[in-house]
């Protein structure tokens, strides 16, 4: 087969696909962040820690209670969402009237504490978590060897992203949420319980992070710092997509995954930097992000 820019075409296709898979994680995480920022105006720095907690919850369910992957996929997000809701009620809700910076600092501090507690309890090197039997194995696509599990991750992420977007943009509940961000007092005057809606929204955003964590558990080392490497990239994704833009977060997540994947072929040393270069360029050209409202 032909070469493209000196790289054999099959290898390049493979890398595009892998980029898409990583993009699925970025999209899922930045989606949760965008939902929380869009509706709560909170920059949720604890998102990476909540992603990590999702993965640990899956491990705990299996190791301590014998509950397998499929139930974990449902239970872990619920458990982590409840912890998120408690955090929101106890601490975050006190900051809505203050500058963004306070929310950022609070959630940043929470992330450090959560990660520290997990590190003390479980160490830094991580815990093993097996790929479920139904999703083990691989397909031979001709141009590459595609593990079934990675295919599942992309599909699950796409479904989640689409469903979230539909709920927020196309349903009555979504309309309430969007209205409440524009003018909370007015929506409350119509009889909608805005504080409860905001709390549940935070819980939902956190649950999205936790689902990401459960999906990541079988393929990455389940360790306390697993979220902190991702979260910075995910923040860049949200900024590039436009703070608070749901569709922007999803599209940018997948796109950046692909761009990073290609960088890993052409200039691997720069693969951790390329996203921030793009961020800088986008911010110069369009300060509100690609899909943001200026």
């Amino acid at each position: 087969m032909d070469d493209i820019f000196g790289i054999p075409a099959p290898l390049l296709f493979g890398q595009l696909l892998l980029g898409l898979i990583n993009g699925a994680f970025y999209a899922m995480l930045s989606l949760g962040l965008a939902v929380i920022f869009g509706l709560l105006n909170i920059v949720n720095m604890a998102h990476g820690a909540q992603f990590m907690m999702g993965a640990f919850a899956a491990w705990m369910l299996l190791a301590w209670f014998g509950i397998g992957y499929w139930w974990a996929l449902l239970l872990a997000p619920i458990i982590i969402a409840i912890t998120g809701i408690i955090l929101e009620r106890l601490l975050i809700s006190r900051l809505y009237k203050l500058d963004h910076l306070y929310g950022l600092l609070l959630t940043f501090g929470l992330a450090l504490i959560i990660e520290g507690v997990f590190r003390n309890e479980f160490g830094s090197s991580g815990l093993p978590y097996r790929i479920p039997d139904a999703l083990s194995g691989a397909w031979d696509l001709g141009f590459m060897f595609m593990p079934v599990y990675r295919g599942w991750v992309v599909i699950a992420a796409l479904v989640l992203c689409l469903a979230t977007w539909l709920i927020i943009e196309k349903t009555r509940l979504g309309a309430y949420l969007r209205a409440a961000t524009e003018n909370a007092a007015l929506v409350q005057a119509f009889g909608v319980n805005v504080p409860r809606m905001v709390t549940l929204t935070y819980g939902f955003g956190v649950a999205l992070a936790a689902v990401g964590g459960v999906l990541a558990a079988p393929i990455y080392s389940v360790n306390p710092q697993m979220g902190s490497n991702l979260i910075i990239v995910v923040f860049a994704t949200v900024v590039i997509g436009g703070m608070g833009s749901i569709l922007g977060a999803i599209l940018t997540g997948f796109t950046l995954g692909v761009v990073e994947g290609l960088t890993k072929v052409f200039w691997p040393e720069a693969s951790a930097t390329v996203i921030f270069v793009i961020m800088a360029i986008v911010l110069l050209a369009r300060p509100a992000g690609l899909f943001g409202r200026a």
């Binding site: 290898l11 060897f145 697993m226």
Partner: peptide, 8 residues
Amino acid sequence: TDFSAFVV
């Protein structure tokens, strides 16, 4: 975090 690109 992800090494799949390098593995391939």
